[in-house]
């Protein structure tokens, strides 16, 4: 499979604070690749370096075979970018925004209509509404339309689902899956671990370092211990007790359950063994490093 995005020892510092620490990985052509990590992990910095908006302090990177520093003009022609913050003209209507960005890329909505049709039909009823007056989910759909209007080869989506309701998030990911069929490489970042399983491959990133890169299944498969979900009337009390227990290796609140691992295989009488989620893996990797 051809490499679409290649990242080689990329480092970036803001003053003295390191944001990216010698990161390297490759993304294949047509892959839906997730960059998973909490706020401040360095996701946006990496996006800006790849979209030629920022210069890295060290290392090389290329997008579609083009160097992000030397061939930044060519890259800007072939990528679609959706920044983390909603960045369209709030005082322009949906249609005006689309027309404007179509003109920016020397194209028209009709030309690539097949690509954006599925998304556009959802916002079409509001096409004369100002972008600033749309709901969060609608805004993201419009932003995705604008980023796709010129049929980019590579799509960069920086936290596209942050601040969006669960239903719209689900719809959004379904759209991304459809786009994958068009052979568009998609790099998407998210702080939501549950979205990670929807990607082909994911990179877990924390404090500017990559913790692990693999398919979601591989990552959860590598979970080294047996994981148990336990619940009581008073989870907080239970958590305190578990953490004081020398037999317990880790315990943390996970929704309405506590996820617990044990140092030795303790015979558990009544607790459900579960398969780890990406979030469990993330926590485990984070504590290891």
């Amino acid at each position: 499979m051809a490499t679409s995005i290649s990242i080689n020892n990329i480092s970036k510092k803001y003053d003295d604070t390191p944001a990216l620490n010698s990161i390297s990985f490759d993304i294949n052509q047509g892959e839906l690749f997730g960059l998973i990590g909490p706020d401040g992990a360095g996701k946006t910095s990496l996006f800006r370096i790849l979209t030629t908006l920022l210069l890295a302090d060290g290392g090389q990177a290329s997008v579609a075979g083009l160097d992000v520093v030397k061939q930044y003009r060519e890259i800007r022609n072939i990528v679609g970018y959706m920044p983390g913050k909603f960045s369209l003209y709030q005082d322009l209507s949906v249609q005006e925004n689309l027309d404007f960005f179509a003109n920016v890329f020397h194209t028209s909505m009709e030309e690539n209509y097949d690509l954006i049709r599925d998304i556009y039909v959802q916002i079409e009823p509001f096409k004369n509404r100002r972008a600033g007056k749309l709901s969060g989910g609608m805004k993201q759909k419009l932003a995705l339309c604008c980023a796709l209007i010129h049929r980019p080869q590579v799509l960069f989506l920086d936290e596209p689902t942050t601040g969006v309701d669960p239903v719209s998030r689900k719809e959004f990911w379904e759209m991304l899956k459809r786009l994958k069929k068009e052979n568009i490489t998609i790099l998407v970042s998210t702080p939501y671990m549950d979205e990670a399983t929807l990607c082909d491959r994911i990179a877990l990133i924390q404090s500017g370092k990559i913790l692990s890169i693999a398919t979601p299944d591989e990552i959860t498969g590598k979970y080294p211990q047996k994981l148990f979900a336990v619940r009581s009337e008073n989870n907080y009390q239970l958590l305190k007790q578990l953490r004081n227990d020398p037999q317990v290796s880790s315990a943390y609140i996970f929704g309405e359950y506590l996820h617990v691992t044990f140092k030795n295989d303790v015979p558990v009488i009544e607790a459900e063994e579960i398969s780890p989620t990406v979030e469990d893996c993330f926590i485990q990797l984070m504590e290891m490093s």
Binding site: T51, T52, L53, R73, R76, N77, V79, Y81, P83, K85, F86, S87, L88, Y89, Q90, F101, V104, F105, H106, C146, A147
Partner: peptide
């Protein structure tokens, strides 16, 4: 508003 960010990542 961040629109400059999008405009910069374009052929303009």
């Amino acid at each position: 508003q961040g629109t400059m960010e999008i405009l910069l990542v374009s052929p303009v």
